[in-house]
Computed example of a mutant assay.
Amino acid sequence: MTTRDALQARLEQGIAALGLSLPADAVPRLLDYQALLERWNAAYNLTAVRDPAEMVTRHLLDSLAILPYVQGATLADLGTGPGLPGIVLAIAAPGRQILLVDSNGKKVRFLREAIRALKLDGVRALQSRVEEVEGQFDCITARAFASLADMLAWGGHLLAPGGIWLAMKGKPADDELPGVPAGFALRERHALKVPGLDAERHVLLLGRA
């Protein structure tokens, strides 16, 4: 079995375990993204995860685990790094406008190459600090890039009325809830079971109070 076949099997098993139904071309495109990330990572150190199989688990499946909670026509992924979960969500559920935001120039250069190479319609990358981004979005994703208090203080203005903020965390983040700024409230919290990942994962759904 070639490496790509092995990675495909791992990814397909994980998608099945998550109970997701993805577009027919999603698996090969996710693997193309993983391969591009692996190639760039050798030169630019975009992620500490270097093993391809671990990338499938820690990056692709971890990002896909929040897909059932994603909603709306527009999404901003704040502190996206190399496109996690934003690019994964763009491939898995195409059709929405997605803004990938990161302050790191190397990572944004990679994002723009990934958008071009993978032909991701409706996806754009912006090099910016979160607090300087403009616009409003139906859904905002943030993968453990800051505390809830900081996330919402910096980026709360980006959440459209009726929108949902998906904060991806390891622990349940009980200690962070008292710091949620006025005007926002925790709607739901779900433990995530990421196939192949022996670690706690949670998603917190926050909205305007």
Rank of each mutant, 00 (worst) to 15 (best):
P52T: 12
P52G: 04
A53H: 11
E54L: 04
E54T: 06
M55F: 00
M55V: 15
V56I: 15
T57Y: 06
L61M: 00
L61V: 12
D62S: 01
S63P: 09
S63T: 06
S63E: 04
L64H: 05
I66D: 09
I66K: 02
L67I: 04
L67K: 01
Y69L: 10
G72E: 13
T74F: 01
T74L: 11
L78D: 01
L78Q: 07
P82C: 11
G83E: 08
I87V: 15
V88H: 11
A90Q: 08
A92P: 06
A93N: 12
A93Q: 15
P94L: 06
Q97H: 13
Q97L: 10
Q97D: 15
L99M: 08
V101H: 06
D102M: 09
S103Q: 14
S103Y: 07
N104E: 04
G105R: 15
K107M: 02
V108S: 08
V108E: 02
R109C: 07
R109S: 14
F110C: 09
L111H: 03
L111N: 10
L111T: 05
R112G: 04
I115A: 07
I115Q: 11
I115H: 08
R116S: 14
L118A: 04
D121G: 07
G122K: 00
G122Q: 13
R124V: 12
A125G: 14
L126P: 01
L126F: 03
Q127R: 15
S128V: 13
